[in-house]
């Protein structure tokens, strides 16, 4: 589907979507968003790229394989549950760092649920992209 309009738009949209997806994931704890939505959004960015420039280009732009995303996401989600075990708490009990402020971003509040959400983000994105790329390539062949 070669279209100059789509290709040119995608150039700007893909990075914007990537940043947006990260932001949506981060803000999910207090406002609509979160890992699931962020992951879907990230995959939309690369799906768009796949449609406009082809699967190979989209794969290349992603840099890591979707399988890697899934594996890394699962590992991160698992790891996020471990600190609680050290403190003799139940697996996956949430732990938070004290709040602090950063310029531009305002109050920052970090804890294991955010790490977990990043794992979810990566797994969901990896899953969607894996399915998308597989089916697209099937189609191209």
């Amino acid at each position: 589907m070669k279209s100059i309009i789509l290709t040119q738009t995608t150039k700007f949209l893909t990075p914007a979507f990537v940043i947006l997806s990260l932001f949506i994931t981060y803000r999910g704890h207090n406002l609509p968003g979160g890992g699931f939505i962020g992951g879907l959004m990230l995959s939309t960015a690369f799906a768009l790229l796949a449609v406009s420039d082809g699967v190979e280009k989209a794969r290349h732009a992603l840099r890591v394989s979707p399988e890697f995303l899934i594996a890394a996401g699962l590992c991160i989600a698992l790891i996020s549950g471990l600190p609680a075990l050290l403190g003799d708490d139940a697996f996956m009990k949430s732990l938070w760092l004290p709040e602090f402020s950063l310029p531009l971003l305002g109050k920052i509040h970090l804890g294991t649920p955010i790490v977990f959400d990043i794992g979810v983000f990566m797994t969901v994105a990896g899953f969607t992209l894996k399915v998308f790329f597989s089916l697209c390539r099937e189609e191209e062949n």
Partner: peptide
């Protein structure tokens, strides 16, 4: 859980183990 978005808090904190199962 220090989160205002209940849906997300349920997903990543209250029922995190379920979510973990789902992503597996």
């Amino acid at each position: 859980a220090k989160g205002k978005n209940v849906v997300n808090v349920i997903l990543v904190d209250f029922r995190a183990l379920d979510t973990f199962g789902e992503i597996i």
